[in-house]
């Protein structure tokens, strides 16, 4: 089947999609956007997190056909998204904070965490530690022990506060 959708602001079309394919597969293998990661494909790790009409979801659990006509933002589009929020720069603040705080090791969980953290900071610009933990509880990381991820999200929040 054919699927039309908007990804990171651009209309996209995928052809010959098998009906059982996930949005994650379409993004990675058909649209050349492998930033969203395929770590568990059962909604237990959050590595494939994208925003579907603004809402963070596991793209591995969205059937490709369900994305028809909808808007998707992936990690590849985070900087643009931040730009539209007038948080311009080469990188979204949360991306820069992940680099600066040492929150990236192997990096496989990073795209999903960034999409989830960015969305949380949009909703809750001044989160408590427990708010951060709850919002990111659907994103597994095996390298960092999460401490530097906490640091990164706090840093991004603090920088956003300063910028305001």
């Amino acid at each position: 089947m054919r699927v039309n959708l908007t990804v990171n602001g651009r209309p996209q079309q995928a052809d010959d999609v098998w009906e059982g394919e996930s949005l994650l597969y379409v993004l990675r293998e058909r649209l050349g956007l492998p930033g969203s990661k395929n770590a568990c494909e059962q909604g237990e790790c959050g590595s494939c997190t994208v925003r579907l009409d603004g809402v963070p979801v596991c793209s591995c659990l969205v059937a490709a056909g369900q994305a028809e006509g909808r808007e998707v933002v992936t990690v590849e589009g985070l900087a643009d998204l931040a730009g539209r929020r007038a948080e311009g720069g080469e990188l979204a603040p949360v991306q820069q904070a992940f680099i600066d705080a040492g929150a990236v090791q192997c990096g496989f969980c990073t795209p999903g965490l960034l999409v989830a953290a960015d969305e949380m900071l949009e909703r809750n610009p001044n989160p408590s530690d427990e708010d951060i933990r709850e919002a990111l509880s659907g994103n597994l990381c095996r390298c960092t022990g999460y401490e530097k991820i906490m640091d990164a999200v706090r840093l991004a929040a603090a920088r956003q506060q300063e910028a305001v």
Partner: peptide
């Protein structure tokens, strides 16, 4: 020094090519 990872930017933008991303 705590210099930052040279692959950090690629990893936060989704451009870093993992083995499962090969095509």
């Amino acid at each position: 020094e705590s210099t930052l990872r040279p692959d950090g930017t690629l990893k936060v933008t989704g451009e870093f090519a993992y083995s499962s991303d090969m095509w």
